[in-house]
Amino acid sequence: MAYWLFKSEPDAWSWDQQVAKGAAGEEWHGVRNYQARNNMRAMKIGDLGFFYHSNIGKEIVGIVEVSATSHPDSTTDDPRWDCVDIRAVKPLPRPVTLEVAKADPRLAAMALVTNTRLSVQPVTEAEWTVICALGGL
Rank of each mutant, 00 (worst) to 15 (best):
residue 92 L to P: 00
residue 27 E to M: 11
residue 85 D to E: 14
residue 136 G to L: 03
residue 12 A to V: 14
residue 20 A to H: 06
residue 95 P to V: 01
residue 52 Y to F: 06
residue 38 N to V: 08
residue 8 S to E: 09
residue 1 M to G: 12
residue 63 I to W: 04
residue 117 R to I: 05
residue 132 C to F: 13
residue 87 R to H: 03
residue 46 G to W: 07
residue 20 A to Y: 11
residue 78 D to M: 10
residue 88 A to P: 10
residue 89 V to E: 02
residue 128 W to L: 10
residue 29 H to E: 11
residue 73 D to K: 15
residue 84 V to I: 15
residue 110 M to A: 09
residue 127 E to A: 07
residue 54 S to Q: 08
residue 1 M to C: 10
residue 97 T to A: 09
residue 24 A to R: 13
residue 50 F to W: 04
residue 24 A to S: 14
residue 53 H to C: 06
residue 65 E to W: 07
residue 31 V to P: 00
residue 74 S to I: 14
residue 25 G to W: 00
residue 128 W to V: 10
residue 74 S to C: 12
residue 115 N to W: 10
residue 99 E to V: 13
residue 88 A to W: 03
residue 107 L to K: 04
residue 15 W to V: 10
residue 113 V to T: 09
residue 100 V to T: 13
residue 33 N to F: 11
residue 46 G to Y: 03
residue 120 V to W: 02
residue 90 K to Q: 14
residue 4 W to H: 15
residue 71 H to C: 00
residue 110 M to N: 09
residue 32 R to L: 09
residue 67 S to P: 08
residue 36 A to D: 05
residue 82 D to M: 13
residue 108 A to N: 09
residue 100 V to Y: 10
residue 87 R to I: 01
residue 102 K to M: 05
residue 84 V to T: 05
residue 129 T to A: 14
residue 68 A to T: 12
residue 5 L to Y: 01
residue 59 E to Q: 12
residue 104 D to G: 00
residue 105 P to N: 08
residue 40 M to E: 01
residue 38 N to K: 03
residue 104 D to H: 00
residue 116 T to M: 10
residue 14 S to I: 06
residue 38 N to P: 07
residue 70 S to G: 12
residue 130 V to L: 06
residue 52 Y to H: 00
residue 50 F to R: 06
residue 64 V to N: 10
residue 68 A to P: 01
residue 127 E to H: 03
residue 15 W to E: 05
residue 10 P to V: 09
residue 43 M to H: 02
residue 56 I to T: 13
residue 122 P to F: 14
residue 83 C to P: 06
residue 19 V to K: 12
residue 83 C to M: 13
residue 61 V to T: 14
residue 36 A to Q: 04
residue 111 A to Y: 03
residue 21 K to P: 10
residue 44 K to E: 12
residue 61 V to H: 04
residue 110 M to P: 05
residue 54 S to P: 02
residue 132 C to V: 11
residue 62 G to R: 01
residue 51 F to R: 02
residue 80 R to H: 14
residue 71 H to I: 08
residue 59 E to W: 05
residue 9 E to P: 07
residue 53 H to Y: 07
residue 95 P to N: 00
residue 119 S to A: 11
residue 124 T to I: 00
residue 34 Y to T: 15
residue 135 G to T: 02
residue 76 T to D: 11
residue 75 T to D: 08
residue 35 Q to V: 10
residue 8 S to H: 10
residue 134 L to A: 04
